[in-house]
Structures are given as structure tokens and as C-alpha cells.
Write a protein that binds this DNA or RNA. Structure first.
Lengths: 227, 227
DNA sequence: GTCTATATCGGGATAGAC
DNA sequence: GTCTATCCCGATATAGAC
């Protein structure tokens, strides 16, 4: 049925990503992945060295992709605040497009990145460094105030990853124990993260012109959207 | 050597919490926990039903503790902004005192809370509801603007959990790939989360008197980090 | 490249002595 | 309450046919 070159590999990778996201590395059996991919278990060992090899391959692609997007944004000619917004948008759209990313990232964080070889760690560091470049540029241009890059990094990344990654538990809790809580639109959440970031970064900057005054768009924050 | 009543149980719980945090539920073997606790594997099955029973016991204690702290704060007579700060402080001090908490929470989020029975989910919901009470009180008193509780919840929780939970990878990355990055003081990070939260919540509130004008302490944050 | 066995072993769980 | 010994399933990994 399925014969295209590299197709098998991709099917396995896709199935594995979802499975690893849902149940973690050791919680996922190779048989499960094989079944989900539509192929046999032996194919996994044919295309990848072993279970960990498959897992690391996924991690690498995740961080590589994020790193290249971050580099594109940092290299662009957008003004720094727009770069920050683009950075957040990119992160969120990746999380939305590839729902396996947030859980996998959360698990790796919790695990202390023991599965990450030096090359993959470099990819992670690259993402951070691109954010740092944006911050430095904004500072040099006088549109950002000084901000610790690590602190900023976590403040931007964590809400997106957490919100997207916690989607299943969020809806489960909403249905059973918090039925009166209005569902949160992901776009509203992202808009909120963006406007928060911009305001924090631009407030008190040395430079005169704040190229994009922090206004709220969307109805993230409107009278009466409390519970 | 160790004979005090309930001491064995506690030793097992402590060893299990660390192990589960580091390697997850299925990544941790019962033998490992037994060895770390100083007891034998059979003792685990004597004191707890099975591996999952032990795990759920830990989850329950975590959420119960957080829930009771949150309730205390919500019930206190502090002004709402101080309650928010106390809420954040409590969360962070729990994460600092019990380093196993952030990783376990991150893993449970990623897993969609499949290990959580209805009772434990109620405990989680209780934490959220206490935050919501604080927000409602602030709104009623005119010191907070309307804010969606879920959005606020994630914005407060995720940076703390992420930052504390990612401590191992943070230092590892810092040493190997980002040697020039200044180490972030957890206290500075928490201060930043607090001042951001307060400013966001109080900005544009209807009420006249803001019982605690959002001033920043520490140098994490300065003029106008609202949004 | 893809499949069907199958070897091998780790780990959850229990029996039963002390 | 605590230990040793053991059962046994499930999961990684491989051999080898097609």
C-alpha cells in the first residue's frame, strides 16, 4: 500500500511523536508505535537504530525547526518588538501545528534533558541565542529596556508551552470540575502573552519612539470574562 | 535501624517522589525506589497497593498541600494584590522546598492527567478556584481589572513551575553551551513574575484606591511592565 | 524494505519465612 | 513489619524468510 521513498520513515516518526508526547519515552512501547504507524515493529529497528535513536531523532527535528524559525526572525528586518511578537507567534503556531511538541518539551525539561546529546543541546542553545540577539538589538536601538535574557526566555516560552501542552487536562477539568469556566481561546492567550512581553520590554526604554505602543487587541481582556 | 511508626512509609514516599520526578512514572522501577528508600521492594507493596497507588498518593499530597495553602491565602484578610503575591510566593517556596513538585506537575500536564482520579482532580480544581476567588474579590473591590481566571492562572503558574522544573537543564546548558550567560537568581525571577502579575491585574482597575501601588522591588522590572 | 517468529531480560507483583 | 525468592508478563531487540 504505502511505498513512497522515506514515507515509511515519516509515518513512524509521526506515530512516535504522538505516542511519546502522550505517554513519554519509557511509557511508550515500540509495538505501540509500530501499530500506530501501520508498519511492523521490525521496521523501526530497520529505519532507526533503536528506540532511543528514534526518540532523539524527533527531539532533534523539533529543536532544529524551532531554531531555524528563530534565526529567520532574528535575521529579519522587522523592528525588535515585532520580532518578539513573531517569535511568540512562531512558537505558538508550532505548538498548534505539532501538538506533540509541548508535551515532549515539558517531559524533557522535567527529565533534565538526559536524552539530549551535545548536538541537540546546541540546537536548544541556538534558539535562546536568537532571542538574545533580538533583545540586544532592541536595547541597542533604545526600544527595549535592559532585561535578563534567561528571565525573558522563560517568561515567553513557558506560558505557551504550558497552555498548549495542558490542553487535554484543561478540557477534562473544565468538563468535570469547572463547568462554569469559559473556554479560553488560544489566540486570546497568545495575544495576552505578546502584549505583556512587549509592554514589559519597552517600558522605560531609553529610546524615544516606541514603534508599537502596547495596546490590547482582541478581547483577551474585557469586562466580564472572569469565570 | 529505622523503626518509628510511619517512618518507613515516609521514606518510601520521599524516595519515590524524587525518582518519579527525575524519570517519570514508567521510567522508574519499584526496585529503584526500594533501594533509594533503604527498604525492600516488598515493603512498597505492603504499604501501598501497587506502583500506581504509591504514585497517586504523592500526587494527592502535592495538590492537597497546594490547595490548602491557596485556601489560606484566599481566606486571609490581605488586600487582593498582596494575596496574589502570596499565592506566587507560596507556589515558588513549595517548588523550592519540594524540588520534585515541578517535574511531576509538568509530567502530569503532558500526560493529560491520566493518573489523576476524580478526587485528585477536585484538589486541582480547588487551587484554581481559590485563585479565582482572589480575582473576584479584587474586581469587586475595584483594585483589579477584569481578567480571565484561566488565562491568569496559567500566566502565574507556568513560569514558576517551568523555571524551577528546568533547573537541571538550565545549569547544564549554562555550563556547556551558554557559558557567558549570567546565572539567574530564583528570587529575582519570582519578583519579576509577581510585579508583572500585579501590574497586569491592577492596570485600568475601576476602583480609586489601589491599596498597594504596584511598585517594583528588586531590579527585575521597572517602570510600566504592565499588559 | 517488509514481515513473522523468537531470544532475552527487566520489572511489577506475590508467597511465605521470620 | 520486614525480608528473600520467585512467578510471569511485557517490552526491547534480533534472526531470518520473503
Amino acid at each position: 500500500m504505502k511505498k513512497a521513498p522515506g514515507r515509511t520513515r515519516d509515518a513512524i516518526l509521526a506515530a512516535a511523536a504522538s505516542a511519546f508526547a502522550a505517554r513519554g519515552f519509557s511509557g511508550t512501547s515500540v509495538d505501540t508505535i509500530a501499530a500506530a504507524s501501520g508498519f511492523n515493529k521490525a521496521m523501526i529497528y530497520y529505519h532507526f537504530r533503536n528506540k532511543k535513536g528514534l526518540y532523539v531523532e524527533i527531539l532533534r527535528s523539533v529543536f532544529r525547526f524551532m531554531g531555524s524559525r528563530a534565526a529567520d526572525i532574528a535575521d529579519s528586518d522587522l523592528p525588535p518588538p515585532a520580532k518578539i511578537e513573531a517569535f511568540i507567534d512562531a512558537l505558538d503556531s508550532m505548538a498548534a501545528t505539532r501538538p506533540y511538541m509541548p508535551p515532549i518539551m515539558m517531559r524533557e525539561m522535567a527529565e533534565g534533558a538526559v536524552h539530549l546529546d551535545s548536538g541537540t543541546l546546541r540546537l536548544m542553545a541556538a534558539i535562546f541565542n536568537n532571542l538574545r540577539r533580538i533583545l540586544d538589538e532592541g536595547l541597542a536601538k533604545g526600544v527595549f529596556r535592559p532585561a535578563h535574557p534567561v528571565l525573558t526566555y522563560f517568561t515567553l516560552i513557558s506560558p505557551i508551552i504550558f497552555f498548549r501542552g495542558a490542553a487535554p487536562i484543561r478540557v477534562a477539568l473544565g468538563k468535570t470540575h469547572l463547568p462554569d469556566v469559559r473556554v479560553v481561546d488560544p489566540a486570546a492567550f497568545v495575544a495576552n502573552v505578546k502584549s505583556t512581553a512587549i509592554t514589559v520590554l519597552t517600558a522605560g526604554a531609553t529610546g524615544a519612539r516606541s514603534p508599537r505602543p502596547p495596546r490590547r487587541r482582541g478581547r483577551t481582556n474585557r469586562p466580564g470574562d472572569h469565570a
